[in-house]
Simulated assay, not measured.
Amino acid sequence: MTSLVPGPHRASHRPSGTVRPAGEPAVGLPRWAFVPAAVGGLLVLLPLVAMGSRVDWSSFASLITSESSLAALGLSLRTAATSTLLCLVLGIPMALVLARARFAGLDLLRSLVLVPLVLPPVVGGIALLYTFGRRGLLGSSMEVLGVQIAFSTTAVVLAQTFVALPFLVISLEGSLRTAGTRYDVVAASLGARPTTVLRRVTLPLVWPGLASGTVLSFARALGEFGATITFAGSLQGVTRTLPLEIYLQRETDPDAAVALSFLLVLVAVLVIASTRTHRRVR
């Protein structure tokens, strides 16, 4: 009788997600792919290296710890964290609807959700201004109630959320489609309520996609400039985030602008690296 257990002469099938042993060749990777890959890597890395070479390291600490720099950095971190939380609250249901719901106009809705990805940020700022500004679609009614959003810290959060939300939605929607619904159906057949299925089954299954989308949203919010300056202005301690501070310092103190730019890069790298480390630990 022929054994069903694969012998040593047969190709073994490694489970998905396992690490390929060192020295094992990548299957199906053409050699020419390394050339454009290297060019692409240099295109990303060389500008960062060039910027780092222009940093005045002798006065780096004093440049990034000035009162205006610390205020801008603190505001950027607070507003980016708040907008990321808002992206999670709004983006998870949006991704669920786009991935699992079936109704007329779903493709159009998906296209509209992704519009901020292709819009210039300044156009997004103008759209927000005509929505929440003093004479905007909703802003005029809010003004009567004594609520003013434009040119406030709330405006910064809304601008960052507007440009960052699609990153979370598109990442999570892709993960939901890949995961499928078989485990959700099993949990529902055992009597679990839809919210329980979402919390105990669906979200844990798509955790890598959710984590990636969250990091992308935070990084995009942290670096947002165009929509913020158009909709929120540049008031120190209120709406002047770190990208706006870098832009202003570039005209008056180029050394400070370069130092703050390098600081922003370091913060972004640390956030992404910490998330990837957390995913490997899991």
Score class of each variant (00 low, 15 high):
Phe262Pro: 00
Gly174Met: 11
Gly213Lys: 01
Asp255Tyr: 09
Val185Leu: 13
Thr252Ser: 15
Leu203Gly: 04
Thr181Cys: 09
Gly233Glu: 03
Tyr247Trp: 12
Leu248Thr: 06
Gly213Leu: 07
Leu205Lys: 03
Pro204Val: 12
Arg199Val: 11
Arg200Ile: 05
Thr196Tyr: 07
Pro194Gln: 13
Phe167Val: 04
Arg199Trp: 15
His278Cys: 11
Phe167Trp: 10
Ile246Ala: 07
Gly226His: 03
Gly237Cys: 12
Glu224Phe: 04
Gly191Asp: 10
Pro166Leu: 13
Leu210His: 02
Phe167Ile: 05
Gly209Asn: 07
Val238Pro: 01
Ala159Glu: 05
Ala227Met: 06
Ala257Asp: 10
Leu235Pro: 00
Leu203Cys: 08
Thr230Met: 14
Ala192Asn: 06
Leu248Met: 13
Phe262Tyr: 09
Val265Asp: 02
Thr241Asn: 09
Ala192His: 06
Thr195Tyr: 10
Thr181Gly: 03
Val265Glu: 00
Pro254Asp: 09
Ala159Arg: 00
Glu245Trp: 06
Pro204Gln: 13
Leu222Lys: 00
His278Met: 14
Thr214Gly: 14
Ala179Arg: 01
Leu266Arg: 04
Leu263Thr: 14
Gly191Phe: 10
Ser212Cys: 07
Thr161Asn: 03
Thr230Val: 15
Gly233Thr: 06
Thr239Ser: 13
Ala273Leu: 13
Leu205Thr: 02
Val206Lys: 02
Val197Ser: 05
Leu203Ile: 12
Arg199Glu: 10
Val238Ser: 05
Ala227His: 00
Leu190Trp: 04
Leu190Pro: 01
Asp255Pro: 05
Ser171Leu: 12
Leu172Ala: 06
Thr195Pro: 02
Leu244Ser: 02
Phe225Asn: 05
Gly213Arg: 02
Glu224Ile: 08
Thr178Glu: 14
Gly237Leu: 11
Ala187His: 05
Ala227Cys: 10
Pro254Asn: 09
Arg193Trp: 08
Thr252Leu: 14
Glu245His: 15
Val186Arg: 04
Arg200Met: 11
Leu235Asn: 08
Gly209His: 03
Pro254Cys: 12
Ser217Ile: 03
Arg250Lys: 12
Thr241Pro: 03
Glu245Ser: 13
Ala256Lys: 08
Val169Arg: 00
Ala192Pro: 00
Phe162Glu: 00
Ser234Ala: 14
Arg199Ile: 12
Arg200Asn: 09
Gln160Thr: 07
Val265Ile: 15
Gly180Trp: 02
Leu205Trp: 02
Val206His: 01
Thr228Ile: 15
Leu235Ala: 11
Gln236Ile: 11
Arg177Ile: 07
Pro208Glu: 09
Leu198Ile: 12
His278Phe: 14
Leu172Ile: 14
Arg220Leu: 08
Val169Trp: 01
Ala227Thr: 04
His278Pro: 00
Leu266Phe: 07
Pro254Val: 08
Arg177Tyr: 01
Arg240Tyr: 02
Thr178Leu: 15
Ala256Asn: 05
Pro243Asn: 05
Ala219Arg: 01
Leu242Met: 13
Pro194Arg: 13
Leu216Ala: 05
Gly191Ser: 11
Leu260Ile: 12
Thr196Asp: 13
Glu251Asp: 14
Val206Asp: 02
Thr228Ala: 07
Val201Thr: 08
Thr241Gly: 06
